[in-house]
Design a protein around this nucleic acid. Structure first.
Length: 462
DNA sequence: AGTCTATTGAT
DNA sequence: TCAATAGAC
């Protein structure tokens, strides 16, 4: 006698059990559930997971597999194109349908749309609070300005507590699985992994712990979040990127607090939603400027400058500190992300896509939508972007947000002996730092050059 | 969610 | 000299 057909739950960027409506829907079918994850490093091309993301993914999958195990289920790992692996899994398990979280990445959307033509595929919103098609202007068009978008989101939001993790999962017979070790996701350089491990705890439990640690400080978020020398941010981004916690669960947790600072934090969650909204409606966002006139921008070819920026050897302390924090920990403080991005794009006149690609490889929290939208925001070429002429002066930014130089000294030990007065301008200090470069570009010259470059595209569109 | 410069009025 | 302010980029 044939046993009833199971369903597949296909985990993607929703590696959690709690508040996961996709997994819940799979269980609610009343059938046996088989949990699968497919590592597809081919379909996305250059937007396959970067090195830091792969480190995170290894540990997150390891945590998810353990959590599933305690509920009686096994996580089945497969590697290959989703277009071939998913049908293969379906055939092997005789599953009657597949449940999966909605994808935002254009390559994944296309592949899943195609699969849905031949496979019974049920999509669920597991990684966003709002469906990218749900939030529309009065005219029915997508939003291109953040503030009205966020107001509409707040209007549409109805408070609901996050769903608890299922206590038991009626597991179907698991087909053969790869092992995580087979996938070799961990970096070959052990020092790098050590730096990442010292900073982060991937997995659903780590996400909850991070949230619990942040909430008591949410009341001072508005100011503290700008200080890279202080632990003012939530550091939830990598957990959100892999869906170890749902944005709705984070939002709901903030409701126990009140005040302007809470709204500021909530707005950051909504910026992530806005990025997804932009990518959904403009699939070329990661590759091409949203404002077409920026295609004519006179970028410089400067591989030495790009390398100096990547390695944190530009001679500008706060830029170098940020780039080294990124390399050492897989994460960079948001204020410093804006400063380093502005420096690359404006003072060095290097294409934002080069910065985007480096961040993609180095950030444990890399999300295609947020990364692309944020780089275009700094470049001035995106939706509701900062104007190009808003050029951060890294010396002033350093003095304002790292006044004692604690952040700079932590990541640029060459500056240990430079007095605080000159910690952001060591080239003016009587105490010369050892083995630290002089600025690769004069800041006033770089600023003027950037404004000149801007004239080329503003003239042509006037 | 900026910076620079000029200007003004207070030390 | 310097903080506050406005306008331009």
């Amino acid at each position: 006698m044939m046993s009833p057909q199971p369903v597949l739950y296909w985990f993607r960027r929703d590696l959690r059990l709690a508040d996961n409506p996709g997994l819940a829907a799979a269980i609610a079918t009343g059938r046996k559930v088989i949990a699968v994850f497919i590592l597809d490093e081919e379909t996305g091309g250059r937007w396959a997971a970067g090195a830091a993301s792969k480190w995170w993914l290894h540990h997150s999958l390891s945590a998810l597999a353990a959590d599933l195990q305690t509920r009686g289920a096994t996580l089945v790992l497969r590697r290959g194109r989703i277009a071939t692996e998913l049908p293969r899994l379906l055939a092997e398990t005789d599953a009657c349908e597949v449940h999966v979280g909605e994808a935002i990445e254009p390559w994944a959307r296309r592949a899943i749309d195609t699969l849905a033509q031949t496979i019974p595929l049920r999509r669920h919103r597991t990684s966003l609070m709002f469906s990218p098609e749900e939030i529309r202007t009065g005219a029915g068009t997508p939003y291109s300005v953040f503030t009205p978008f966020s107001k509409e989101c707040r209007k549409c939001y109805t408070p609901h507590p996050p769903a608890e993790a299922p206590r038991q999962i009626p597991a179907g017979k698991a087909p053969p699985s790869d092992t995580l070790k087979d996938w070799a996701l961990l970096p070959s350089h052990p020092d790098w992994a050590a730096g990442l491990r010292a900073t982060h705890t991937p997995g659903e439990a780590g996400a909850q712990a991070r949230l619990a640690k942040f909430l008591p400080r949410i009341g001072v978020y508005g100011e503290a979040r700008n200080r890279p020398d202080q632990p003012g941010t939530s550091m939830l981004s990598p957990h959100l990127a892999w869906g170890e916690i749902s944005p709705g669960a984070i939002w709901h947790a903030t409701l126990a607090h009140a005040g302007r600072d809470v709204e500021v934090f909530q707005s950051e969650v909504l910026w992530r939603e806005f990025s997804a909204h932009l990518l959904w409606n403009s699939p070329t966002l990661p590759d091409a400027p949203l404002k077409p006139q920026y295609s004519a921008f006179p970028w410089r070819q400067d591989s030495a400058g790009l390398t100096a920026w990547q390695q944190g050897r530009t001679g500008i302390p706060i830029v170098d500190a940020g780039m080294r924090q990124l390399w050492q920990t897989g994460w960079m403080h948001n204020r410093v992300r804006m400063i380093t991005a502005s420096f690359l794009i404006k003072h060095l006149l290097i294409r934002w896509q080069d910065g985007e690609a480096w961040f993609w490889n180095c950030l444990v929290d890399a999300e295609l939508a947020a990364n692309a939208a944020s780089w275009q925001w700094v470049a001035g070429s995106g939706a509701d972007a900062a104007p190009f002429f808003r050029i951060f002066n890294p010396v002033l930014q350093g003095g304002k947000f790292d006044p004692a130089g604690d952040y700079v000294r932590k990541y640029v030990p060459e500056l240990a002996d430079v007095p605080v007065k000159h910690i952001h301008t060591p080239w003016e200090s009587a105490v010369k730092p050892r083995n630290y470069p002089t600025p690769i570009v004069d800041l006033a010259f770089g600023r003027a050059r950037a404004l000149d470059a801007l004239k080329i595209i503003t003239r042509s569109t006037a």
